[in-house]
């Protein structure tokens, strides 16, 4: 479990990084290293160039602008976990991040690294999809924005060019008092989820659901928005049967399979996790009380 030889690069700017990406074939960016380092050691990936962006400036920030949250690609997960701004404006992100690995891995792991790695069960891509985030990338030709819905090109493959890198994310903010629920099932604390669900509910005075976002991770190759469930929830007032019916629509999502979790189990868990997340979200909505 030692990596094969590679050339190590240590750029200081985004421009320098994308230039290195453009110039070198078979290059990999090293962010927090919590996935890449084990993959290197197991020789699952064998890059010729590793570009370490831990000293690249200006990629670590959490700020609010124009009613949205902006988070830099190299912001450590632990910083997001502890940011008051995130807890206030996008509490589901904090809820999700508590399920990301362990505190030791969160000290190193980054938002941009998680999005770029795009593990099907990872929490941060899931919550980004739930919030309809915009991903900012930069390449030799400049910057561009990608809607999170368009970001995954396939299994563990972001739709960015080989010479582009993720530099930040913008998260739309839901109204104050909105409900949120993030629930996942894993065998052990800190494992990748087998299935995770993120639910956001905007509940109007009187307890009626005005708008819903329901997303599951770990079932398909990338986070899946459950539009049928969202439709089913809209207009409902929090009855258990309504949540059950809405969640049940998730049973038909195309599901992956491996030695631990057959497809039927992932689909079944999708209904359970989304329902539990709906109940949690509704319970937290200010107008539901």
């Amino acid at each position: 479990m030692k990596p094969p030889p590679f050339k190590y690069h240590d750029p200081r700017t985004v421009a320098e990084t994308v230039e290195l990406l453009a110039r070198n074939e078979n290059a990999k960016i090293l962010a927090g290293g919590q996935s890449l380092m084990p993959m290197l050691n197991m020789r699952y990936v064998q890059p010729d160039h590793v570009i370490d962006i831990n000293r690249v400036e200006g990629l670590s920030y959490i700020r609010e602008a124009g009613g949205r949250l902006e988070i830099g690609a190299m912001t450590r997960q632990r910083e997001i976990e502890y940011a008051d701004l995130v807890a206030r404006r996008a509490p589901i992100v904090r809820e999700a991040i508590l399920n990301v690995g362990h505190r030791q891995t969160r000290n190193r792991g980054t938002l941009g690294g998680s999005l770029s790695h795009l593990d099907p069960a990872a929490e941060l891509p899931l919550v980004s999809a739930a919030l309809e985030a915009t991903v900012h990338v930069q390449g030799p030709k400049g910057k561009r924005d990608i809607a999170m819905a368009e970001f995954p090109a396939g299994y563990m493959s972001p739709s960015i060019e080989l010479d582009e890198m993720v530099i930040g994310v913008t998260l739309p903010v839901w109204p104050d008092g909105h409900g949120y629920g993030f629930v996942e099932f894993s065998r052990r604390h800190g494992d990748f989820a087998i299935v995770a669900a993120a639910v956001l509910l905007d509940v109007e005075a009187g307890g009626k659901i005005k708008r819903a976002s329901v997303t599951v991770g770990g079932v398909g190759p990338s986070p899946v928005r459950c539009r049928d469930a969202e439709k089913a929830l809209t207009g409902e007032k929090g009855a258990e049967a309504a949540f059950r019916a809405a969640a049940e629509t998730c049973r038909t999502i195309d599901a992956m399979e491996d030695v631990y979790a057959p497809a039927w189990y992932r689909q079944h868990l999708a209904t359970v996790m989304t329902r539990r997340a709906m109940v949690a979200a509704f319970g937290r909505a200010a107008n539901a009380r």
Partner: peptide, 16 residues
């Protein structure tokens, strides 16, 4: 063998 990493072979940790 199909479980050859600690992610596939589950040794319980302190929380379990």
């Amino acid at each position: 063998p199909v479980t050859t990493t600690s992610a596939e072979y589950l040794v319980p940790g302190a929380p379990e």
